[in-house]
Design a protein around this nucleic acid. Structure first.
Lengths: 178, 178
DNA sequence: GTGATTATTTAACATTTGTAAAAGGATTGG
DNA sequence: CCAATCCTTTTACAAATGTTAAATAATCAC
C-alpha cells in the first residue's frame, strides 16, 4: 500500500529497529505489551500457560507481525509470552507512537486496519483448520505453508502450535516416513 | 466511542435497517458479500460446507456483527452462508458505503479498526478454546457466555459451533444431567 | 571430547470423540 | 388431529488422540 512521503518519514522516526539474539524473551505475561513487532528476519513464537503447560499460540516468520495482540489493543496485561527462537532483526513500534501516527496521518490508520484484517483472516484460516481437520492434515498443511519450519522450530513447539501432544506428532511423522 | 454529528448523520444515511424473518438466507456462498450486518435483535449463524456437511463457524447475537468477513474485506466471493435463526432486526452497511464513510470521515475509520479488533479478540478467544479445552469444557464455557443459547439455537448448530458431532454433544449433556 | 541436559521417538494402555444406525420426541403443515 | 418431517438421544463399535514412562538421539556447557 502506497503511503505519502510524510507518513513514511513519520513511521521511520517512530520505528525502532534492532538485532535480537535467540532465546530472548521479548514479552512477559502479566505485563502490558506496548509494542507490536515486525519481523524482518528470524522466527518468534507466542505462547501462554495452560495448566502449567506452555501452549504455542502463534509462530511468526519474516515479513510477519508478532505481538501480544490482546494487550496491544486492549491496553490490559497480556496472557502471552513472546520468545525469539532464532537470531532476529526486529522492527518495533509502540502503542503510543501508533496512536500519534494514526491521529496525524489518517492514511496510516487505514494501513493499520488492513494489517489487522490480514491477521484476522489468518486467524480465521487457523480456526477452520482446527475445527475440521485431523492432526495429520494440520501437520501437512503447516509443512506446505512453511516448508523450512522443521529446520527452524523445534517439534515440541510445532506440536503445541498444532494443538496436539508431542507423542501424537511423533506418530504422525513416523507414518510420513513410510 | 463518541462520533461527531456529521459522522453520525453520514452513518444514518448509509445504514439500512430492516426486519428479517427467521430462516432467511442473508448471504450465499460463492457470492461477494458487500455488507456487514449489525444485529439489533435476533440470532444469526454463519456456516460453510466441508465434505457436504454444514459447519457452523459463528453465532451472532444482539449487539454483534455478523458478516462473511473474509469476503467483506478481500472483495472475493465468500465460503460462508449466513442464515437468520430468529426473527431479527438487522442494520446493514455496504462495503462501498463503508469505504466512502472512512474516506470522508477519518474518525469512522478508527471505529472500523476498533470493531475489527474486537472481532479479532473474540476469534482469538475461540482459538484458545479449541486448542486446549475438551469438548465438555467448550460446552460449559459457551453456556456461561450465552446462557439463553439453548432456547435460541438448535443443538446441531451448537455442536457444530463447538467443533463436535451431535452425538458427542448429546453425551456431554447426558453427563451434565447427573 | 565428555557428562549433563534437552529433544524426540517408541510402547502400552486409557480416554475421548467419531460413525452408523435405530429409536424416541418435538414440530409443522394440511 | 395426523402424518410427515426434523431434531435429539441412545447404542455398539471403530478410530484418533492423550497419558505415562522408558529408550534413543541430539545438543550444550565445560
Amino acid at each position: 500500500m502506497p503511503l505519502s512521503t510524510e507518513s513514511l518519514q513519520a513511521i521511520n522516526q517512530i520505528a525502532w529497529r534492532r538485532h535480537i539474539p535467540k532465546r530472548t524473551i521479548l514479552q512477559r505475561a502479566s505485563e502490558v505489551c506496548p509494542y507490536f513487532h515486525f519481523i524482518e528476519k528470524g522466527v518468534g513464537r507466542v505462547y501462554y500457560y495452560h495448566n502449567e503447560q506452555e501452549i504455542t499460540a502463534w509462530l511468526g516468520f519474516e515479513g510477519q507481525i508478532i505481538s501480544a495482540i490482546d494487550s496491544f489493543f486492549t491496553g490490559k496485561p497480556t496472557d502471552y509470552w513472546i520468545e525469539i527462537l532464532e537470531d532476529a532483526q526486529i522492527c518495533s513500534i509502540s502503542n503510543a507512537d501508533i496512536d500519534w501516527l494514526f491521529t496525524h496521518f489518517p492514511e496510516t490508520e487505514r494501513l493499520g486496519r488492513l494489517m489487522i484484517t490480514e491477521n484476522y483472516l489468518r486467524l480465521d484460516e487457523r480456526m477452520k483448520l482446527f475445527a475440521f481437520h485431523t492432526a495429520e492434515q494440520r501437520y501437512e498443511i503447516l509443512l506446505r505453508q512453511f516448508p523450512d519450519i522443521l529446520q527452524r522450530v523445534s517439534l515440541r513447539y510445532i506440536a503445541s502450535y498444532l494443538g496436539i501432544t508431542q507423542v501424537t506428532l511423533s506418530r504422525i511423522r513416523a507414518e510420513f516416513r513410510q
